[in-house]
């Protein structure tokens, strides 16, 4: 059964390179992500964290290198083959990417209906459960345009988790959220891992979230992995660059 052999990494990224025009965003990223682990991607803005995440789910095609899901190369798949592979994953977009023409509940129900679920009660229960996890049940009938940025993001998270995928990729799940809701989302990510052994890849700039949820931390800098280790190793790293990043120091003097 795929997804259970712990000797094979669930996701393996090898020599990934991607350029946009003259801008070399990824310059040879190597990364293994194991089943059930929560990996947090950190690094300065514009260093290709979202680009890497989009390669993992096959939204972008690399210039060089490969991305394997359970040993199967996603980069050699057609778009229609990728559609099937992606059903094992959930994805939270940085801007949530909710469908503007559907209510919050309809947005969350969308992947269930598309996956073929027809029982309306079962759909309603699953939607309620997902919205409850992100504390958004009270707003289920609102249109996305009437939600705050943080609420939109939480609705996006509910939509990403509602199908109970094996792996969820979060692009800045707590950006723009207040500290209490950030804590709720962090706990939800931890709970998903403990209860369903969900593999999570999280991009965040919130260092308290990093130390709260990460099994492993990867830092991207100049298009390559510049750090790969546990949160404890990150904290103990002697690299001034990493320490400045953790402390949020720019080095500028007022």
């Amino acid at each position: 059964m795929p997804g259970t052999d712990s000797s094979v990494p669930f996701i393996r990224v090898t020599g990934l390179k991607k350029s946009f025009g003259a801008q070399k965003t990824l310059q040879g990223v190597d990364l293994d992500i194991c089943h059930g682990e929560t990996l947090v991607l950190i690094g300065p803005s514009g260093e290709g964290k979202s680009v890497l995440l989009k390669h993992i789910i096959g939204l972008l095609h690399p210039d060089e290198g490969r991305v394997e899901l359970d040993g199967v190369n996603l980069c050699s798949m057609t778009e229609r083959q990728l559609l099937i592979a992606r059903q094992r994953m959930g994805y939270l977009f940085q801007n949530a990417a909710l469908f503007g023409s559907l209510t919050v509940a309809e947005n969350v129900a969308f992947p269930l209906k598309e996956a073929g679920l027809r029982d309306q009660k079962q759909i309603a229960d699953r939607v309620h459960e997902a919205l409850d996890l992100v504390e958004l049940s009270a707003h289920k009938d609102k249109m996305p345009v009437n939600l705050s940025g943080g609420m939109r993001k939480r609705a996006g998270i509910a939509r990403a988790i509602v199908t109970r995928p094996e792996c969820i990729l979060y692009d800045e799940p707590t950006a723009g959220l207040d500290p209490v809701v950030t804590d709720v989302i962090d706990h939800m990510i931890q709970r998903m891992q403990k209860r369903f052994r969900v593999t999570s890849v999280v991009i965040t700039h919130d260092m308290s979230s990093v130390f709260r949820i990460a099994d492993r931390v990867v830092m991207l800098k100049n298009g390559v992995v510049s750090f790969n280790g546990t949160p404890g190793e990150l904290r103990a790293s002697p690299e001034p660059e990493i320490q400045n990043f953790i402390a949020g120091r720019s080095g500028l003097i007022a």
Partner: peptide, 17 residues
């Protein structure tokens, strides 16, 4: 508008062409 708001990509990640 759906394309620039990444709603088209959202369809793709949910397994919908």
């Amino acid at each position: 508008t759906m394309k620039v708001n990444e709603e088209i990509d959202a369809l793709r990640v949910m397994g919908v062409h």
